[in-house]
């Protein structure tokens, strides 16, 4: 008896399935490019200089020296876009990971156990949801601003951009939680969950090994859509002057463009918009492909 050695793991085969789709593979490449640009600043390598001001060079259109042109202070718009990527990705990543973990855990607990656990969690997210979104984020951001806390013995201070990402994450889990709760209730009553209980599986094992794999595609698609919406939220908050300060971000760039457009200076707006456009588009396509890949019933189908 020779069992094939190649392990056909659920996640591995899902990944292979995703990458078989050309659009998804291209999207992944673009996403990785953004991530690389965002991580650039942390590697210690020289990054494009966005700080040097040169008033003689103000509002120069795109040229060889400045491919995206310059702004009112004569700073390089490409460099600002690169730095903005870092801000956008770190805000969105922190916020969506936070929202994903909270939403998934609370949704599964509420859906599987029901009873007072469900009541409590439902009450929590209904309350959060009843407060207008922007107001809620601002409230969180203000409360979290300039707090210090200790984690594993190290002291952290929450400042500007971190407050924004925490606020987004702590408020953004509601949608996913509702979704997962509903699905968990549905799957809890399925016969294969009963069958797994008849095998002697514990509640924890049932949730992780039977229900979670059936709802994880929702978490993935919510993650990728959420990522986009957190980038947008950062842009909106910064545009309103409530988010990132003193450093470039896409939102700040668009805010600057308010005063530039009537002079015919379009390149700063164009750069920020293009940066947002491509990451949004690719995340949507990739999220969709991953969702399809995780569902074995849809594998091998091409649309």
């Amino acid at each position: 008896m020779t069992a094939p050695e190649k392990s056909r793991n659920y996640w591995l085969s899902a990944g292979r399935e995703v990458l078989r789709r050309p659009r998804a593979a291209v999207s992944l490449a673009v996403i990785l490019f953004y991530l690389a640009v965002a991580l650039w600043g942390f590697t210690g390598w020289k990054t494009p200089d966005w700080e040097t001001e040169n008033f003689e060079m103000a509002y120069r259109p795109p040229s060889r020296a400045h491919p995206f042109g310059t702004d009112i202070y004569g700073r390089d718009v490409l460099a600002k876009t690169v730095y903005g990527t870092r801000v956008a990705v770190s805000v969105a990543l922190t916020a969506s990971v936070l929202a994903l973990v909270i939403g998934l855990v609370l949704g599964l607990l509420a859906g599987y156990f029901g009873g007072w656990i469900d009541d409590l969690i439902t009450w929590l997210f209904s309350t959060l949801q009843s407060i207008p979104y922007i107001l809620l984020i601002l409230a969180f951001a203000f409360v979290l601003q300039d707090r210090t806390f200790t984690l594993f013995g190290a002291e952290f201070r929450i400042r500007g951009i971190n407050a924004v990402s925490l606020a987004l994450g702590l408020t953004g889990w509601v949608g996913l939680c509702r979704l997962i709760r509903g699905e968990a209730i549905k799957h809890r009553e399925r016969e294969y969950v009963l069958a797994a209980r008849a095998l002697g599986s514990s509640p924890g094992r049932l949730i992780v090994r039977q229900i979670l794999p059936n709802v994880v595609h929702l978490a993935v698609i919510t993650f990728s859509l959420g990522f986009v919406s957190y980038i947008h939220a950062e842009v909106i908050l910064s545009f309103l002057g409530l988010g990132v300060k003193h450093v470039p971000s896409w939102g700040v760039m668009i805010d600057d463009a308010k005063l530039e457009l009537f002079r015919g200076v379009w390149w700063q707006l164009a750069a920020a918009t293009a940066a947002i456009f491509f990451i949004s588009l690719t995340l949507h396509i990739f999220g969709d492909a991953v969702r399809d890949g995780l569902d074995p019933r849809l594998r091998g189908e091409r649309r």
Partner: peptide
Amino acid sequence: GMIFQEPMTSLNPVFT
């Protein structure tokens, strides 16, 4: 050990 009526729904659709 227990066997159920519906072999269609007693297996988890996302696992081999």
